[in-house]
Design a binder for these strands. Structure first.
Lengths: 169, 169
DNA sequence: ATTTTATGTCAGCCTTGTTGACATTCCAAG
DNA sequence: CTTGGAATGTCAACAAGGCTGACATAAAAT
């Protein structure tokens, strides 16, 4: 299968990329993502939630008071799909939905104390795995890891990702 | 990124990792994985398949003649779940299932010409994205990327991942 | 001869994605 | 003030793709 296409040759920073190397990268993404979600998944299951709940909790915690629309574009799902998850989180008292002050059509979303507790439990498990991986790989590897991941995102998503810096009040 | 993150302090290879840096890594994984699957997803949709079919095609292509059990442990799903996908791929003439020669209980799985065509279409789209990301990030980044991803895998999965090297006949 | 293994299959359930339709609320333009 | 459109919520229905449990078959292993 197509060995020997995709080779960059020459001057400075060019890579010699075989399809085999690229495939290993693809497989690494696939398997690593499994590890990446494994710990939160276990915690979520114990609480009767799924990954969708985790994502909502994460980004509500990340950008306090975010609107539903903003959350939708971050998560990349339909409002109906998000709404189902959001409803259970609100019913269970993990998320608070406040009517917008300036625009009363909007809802501003916040974690309750209970929601923050679960979010912290989830993110600490995930951070711990990330921390261990970072330590094992070393500082230079970490920088490269982030660079490649950012380059892999769709443009619009990358913009949103970068805008998430230091937004917390 | 990489402004002052991943700074090595103290003795050898120690990292100073803030929760904020770890969170950016977590979000990078989440968003990058979306990009990672975006191109194949579009192709799959046009053919009436889903990600599960892609994964099966990938690993059958990767390890020609693999058994169902082996595929199961690579994919990390139940046989019922895999079987549903596999059945449609066989019915559609993308995959061939041959009775094992030494052990006739086993089924050895192969891509047909048609299956190889789709697999190549999918993997070329995915490789192209990976190649672009690698080029944008540079060789050092690529090495780091792989190191962090490997460190993030569960041990058993990493073993399987490493065993996939150079297995192709 | 019996047990175990590998596989397939049926049935049913859950999560989480989708579309479509429709109601409500409210800002903003005419 | 009325009306159009935007933001949100909700209901219904459907699909993909996970899961469990139960059961069948063939073949290997004991």
């Amino acid at each position: 299968m197509a060995e020997g296409h995709g080779s960059a040759i020459g001057g400075e920073n060019l890579l010699f990329l075989t399809d085999e190397q690229l495939r290993k990268g693809i497989e690494a993404m696939f398997f690593a993502y499994r590890g990446f979600t494994a710990d939160p998944d276990r915690i979520l299951e114990a609480h009767g939630y799924g990954r969708a709940h985790h994502r909502a909790l994460h980004f509500i915690n990340r950008t306090h008071g975010t609107t539903v629309n903003n959350l939708l574009s971050l998560l990349g799902v339909t409002k109906q799909s998000l709404n189902r998850v959001l409803r259970t989180l609100i019913e269970d008292g993990l998320v608070e939905s406040r009517i917008g002050r300036t625009d009363r059509r909007e809802r501003n979303l916040y974690l309750t104390a209970k929601g923050e507790t679960l979010e912290r439990e989830l993110s600490e498990a995930q951070r711990e795995r990330m921390r261990a991986a970072y330590r094992a790989a070393g500082p230079q590897a970490v920088a490269g890891f982030r660079q490649v991941l950012e380059a892999m995102m769709d443009d619009e998503i990358r913009r949103q990702y970068l805008n998430l810096r230091d937004r917390r009040p």
